[in-house]
């Protein structure tokens, strides 16, 4: 057997192909291989845990949309049209679903891989760069958010909660949301060192889920509370998905899109920086 690589498609020639490109010391254009690794590990993982993240918002939809909803009758959406209570909260739960999927992977799983499995250290000993690792891991988390969102849509359709074709826009919307949460979630996780600190993420997520205009319009709050909530990512996610699902499109939605784009860029930047500081000091 030959041990020293001479072939045209050797690891060296592959790395050299990017040798002159910008950012060659942090990125080798191969973030997909991190996702491949996750797919391989995922095949043998516990499906119940994966399923639970999807089922949670679904239970909320059934309990509140069709249970509590009967007592309420109807509400008006952001544009003043009357809608059923289930139709009002369904887009919010869709957004939550995308968020949950992205957050599960980009926080606890990333924390484990970073501190116990030493996976990133291993990856960075190869010709991968920290940006490859960041994009690959965030991409994987995003994928989970995306799958949760699709699953949720498939449940909504037969329940009569998808009124128009515009609702399909909620799928790219969910990708954007999942990308933003995955990116930001991994960046924050990369700075945390203990389980104790990790619990703060959960502590923050629950109230954000309950109070971001998920179950009732924001207008019931005094102005100062409204301002705080409007700074939260889930509120933007819900506004975006609700507008798509109920067909209330307008240029104002761009604000939410930009909010998530900024989240994605900041998350990638800080994750890459932190991985470099931790494993390539």
């Amino acid at each position: 057997m030959s041990l020293i690589g001479l072939a045209a498609d050797s690891a060296v020639s592959i790395a050299q192909r990017r040798g002159n490109k910008l950012g060659r010391s942090v990125y080798s254009g191969r973030s997909r291989v991190a996702m491949e690794r996750n797919l391989m590990a995922f095949r043998s993982s516990n499906w119940i845990i994966v399923l639970s993240g999807f089922v949670e918002p679904l239970f909320y939809l059934l309990a509140f949309g069709f249970g509590v909803g009967r007592l309420i009758g109807g509400v008006t959406d952001g544009s003043g049209h009357p809608v059923s209570y289930a139709a009002f909260i369904a887009p919010a739960l869709l957004a939550t679903s995308a968020m949950n999927g992205a957050i599960y992977d980009s926080t606890w799983n990333v924390f484990f891989k970073m501190h116990f499995a030493k996976l990133y250290e291993t990856m960075l000993a190869t010709s991968l760069g920290p940006l490859d690792v960041a994009i690959g891991e965030i991409g994987w988390a995003l994928l989970r958010g995306f799958v949760y969102a699709i699953g949720f849509m498939l449940v909504m359709a037969p329940l009569g909660l998808i009124p128009s074709w515009w609702a399909l826009m909620a799928i790219p919307g969910a990708v954007l949301i999942a990308f933003g949460f995955a990116s930001f979630g991994m960046a924050i996780t990369s700075y945390l060192k203990t389980f104790h600190q990790m619990n703060w993420i959960n502590f923050f997520m629950l109230p954000m889920f309950l109070f971001s205009g998920t179950f009732y319009p924001l207008s019931i709050y005094p102005q100062w509370i409204q301002s705080i909530i409007q700074a939260m990512p889930l509120w933007h996610a819900i506004q975006l998905e609700r507008a798509f699902m109920l067909g209330n499109l307008g240029w104002g939605l761009l604000v939410h899109v930009v909010y998530f784009l900024v989240m994605i860029v900041l998350g990638l930047f800080f994750t890459t920086r932190r991985l470099t500081a931790l494993f390539m000091k």
Binding site: I14, Q16, A117, T126, S127, G129, M280
Partner: peptide, 18 residues
């Protein structure tokens, strides 16, 4: 960095197998 690492095989002190 990445180019050099393509030439190297690394066996760390502590096994970090997946």
């Amino acid at each position: 960095g990445p180019e050099i690492r393509a030439h190297l095989g690394v066996v760390p002190q502590q096994d970090n197998l997946d």
